[in-house]
Simulated assay, not measured.
Amino acid sequence: MVQHSYANPAVLVIDMQVGLFHGGRVIHAAEQVLDNVRRVLVKAHAASVPVFAVRHTGPQGSPIEAGSANWQFMPELGIDLEGDTVFEKTRPSCFAGTDLLQQLRAKGIQELIICGLKTQYCIDSNCRAASELGFKVILVEDAHSCNDTELLPASTIIAHHNATLNGLFASLIKTEDLRF
């Protein structure tokens, strides 16, 4: 088991929304990823680690417009809409056009544990952005996913991003090894 000592951590759950999870193409290892993200949240809540849950908001008339059924978080996750910090974004980076950076700094957060959707878009963007902003990034390697593309199967995309992000932009950890 990998032991890690966290310095003022927070969990960043990205785009775990009904429409992104169930809409369109099938998410790779969907039920396992959903369960792993849920387990990350259970561990964070039990340890009183701050959770920042973001949902992507599409323009009015889009499948994930604000307030729509598809825009909602996956109910199985147990995101605490009162206790967790919930916010919206319109770009891949959670930092672009939001006050996430100010909120993290105000709470003294030094490490971000990242999980959610989709690997090659928002997970990749946020690992890189958070690292460049000076945060220690921990990517939960089995708690993010995407769907197959015309060029690559999702399993290859996920493995590639885990390998690419590991070291320079993030450290990897498995859900079962995450301890606060």
Rank of each mutant, 00 (worst) to 15 (best):
L41I: 03
P75Q: 05
W71Y: 12
V26K: 15
I79S: 02
A29I: 15
G78H: 04
V42Q: 03
A30N: 10
V33P: 05
P63C: 05
M74P: 07
V54R: 00
L34Y: 09
V49A: 03
V51T: 07
G58Q: 04
A69Y: 09
E76A: 09
H28K: 13
E65Q: 12
K43Y: 04
K43V: 06
L34A: 10
G78A: 09
S62E: 08
K43L: 04
S68D: 04
H28G: 08
A66N: 15
V51M: 01
E31D: 14
H56Q: 13
E65H: 08
P59N: 15
G23M: 11
H56F: 13
G61C: 06
N36S: 08
G24S: 11
E65Y: 12
E76H: 12
A46N: 10
A29K: 15
L41V: 06
G61N: 09
P63S: 04
G23E: 05
D35L: 15
G58D: 01
E65W: 11
L41F: 08
L81Y: 14
V54F: 05
D35N: 14
I79G: 01
I64P: 00
F73M: 08
S48V: 12
V54A: 09
V42R: 02
E31M: 12
V49L: 03
L34R: 07
L34P: 02
N70Q: 14
Q32V: 14
A66T: 15
H56D: 06
Q60F: 11
G58K: 01
V51Q: 02
H45D: 02
G23Q: 11
K43E: 06
E76T: 06
F73N: 00
V49E: 01
A44Y: 02
A66H: 14
S62I: 03
H28C: 10
R55W: 13
A53V: 00
R39Y: 13
F52Q: 01
D80P: 09
P50K: 00
P50W: 02
P50I: 03
G23P: 07
A30Q: 11
F73E: 04
G23R: 07
H45K: 12
P59Y: 15
V49P: 00
